[in-house]
């Protein structure tokens, strides 16, 4: 974690939100060593929504966790200009709401951790929950809500401190298709926002194309960036853009990249 904070920044690029420089991650050592990620270079622009797409176990979650400071890279460095690790919100695959707090109390938890829970913060939490259609559920317990609503609340919790960086680890992977569409739509509606940058881990090609400004494809064994595709669609994006020929063309291109680098193909 310290390495992420103290990484040298000869000159800061305010137009970047994340600078990933030659990052690698190896678990274990000697003959048993497993390289999860190898020599990843990536600069994420401020205000950009970026997806990390790849097969299961390709190290995309590892990369996300290293950006969040939850794991340290074994090589290279990650630099977060601006507020650094203090300016990030994290959304987990399983919502990680705590059962002993109501929905709004869950949303306020990060502010309590930072000792900045105020009256105004409470109002902000209410507004945020209302944005995600949870206005009537703020005093409910997490277990009374459906999976989709819980994940909405988890997104509100990640956003309560107005993060510069929203990191999401397959947040909709456990939801049914219809709920997933709803959440995709609500999430894309938060952009464009020049102050907010998102890194979204997924193994769904459609989700990645629909949400992102750029899709980064990572191969497995070892994890390497094998393709970066710009997604040209204007925002806001209706769900129907997924029917457009251009969308299909990009999705097929990504499918091809994934297949070409899949270990199963070999």
């Amino acid at each position: 974690m310290t390495e992420t904070l103290t990484a040298p920044a000869p000159e800061t690029h305010p137009r970047y939100a994340i600078e990933i420089d030659g990052v690698g991650k190896t678990y274990g050592s000697g003959d048993g060593a497993v390289t999860a990620l190898d020599l990843v270079n990536l600069d994420v622009r401020k205000g950009e929504f970026i997806s990390l797409l790849g097969p299961s176990g390709c190290g995309k979650t590892t990369l996300l966790r290293m950006i969040a400071g939850l794991e340290d890279p074994t090589q290279g460095s990650i630099w977060l200009p601006g507020r650094g690790l203090d300016g990030l919100g994290f959304v987990f695959q399983r919502d990680a709401l705590v059962n002993w707090r109501t929905i709004i109390e869950n949303v306020l938890l990060p502010l309590e951790f930072k000792g900045r829970r105020t009256k105004a913060a409470y109002q902000r939490a209410r507004d945020l929950l209302a944005t995600f259609g949870l206005a009537e559920f703020e005093d409910r317990n997490p277990w009374e809500l459906s999976g989709g609503m819980r994940q909405r609340a988890a997104i509100c919790r990640a956003m309560i401190d107005d993060p510069q960086l929203l990191l999401m680890d397959e947040p909709f992977g456990a939801l049914d298709a219809l709920t997933r569409d709803d959440l995709n739509f609500e999430l894309q509606a938060l952009w464009p926002d020049p102050e907010k940058t998102a890194v979204f881990v997924t193994h769904s090609i459609n989700e990645a194309v629909y949400l992102s400004d750029r899709v980064v494809v990572i191969s497995d064994k070892p994890g390497r960036i094998v393709d970066i595709t710009e997604i040209p669609f204007e925002r806001p994006r209706p769900l129907e853009i997924r029917e457009e020929p251009e969308f299909g063309r990009i999705a097929r291109h990504l499918r091809g990249v994934l297949d070409g680098h899949s270990a199963r193909r070999a």
Partner: peptide, 14 residues
């Protein structure tokens, strides 16, 4: 819930 979301709600935290 207002919508019949069928996603697995299980979250065995405690």
């Amino acid at each position: 819930p207002s919508k019949p979301a069928k996603g697995p709600v299980a979250q065995p935290v405690a």
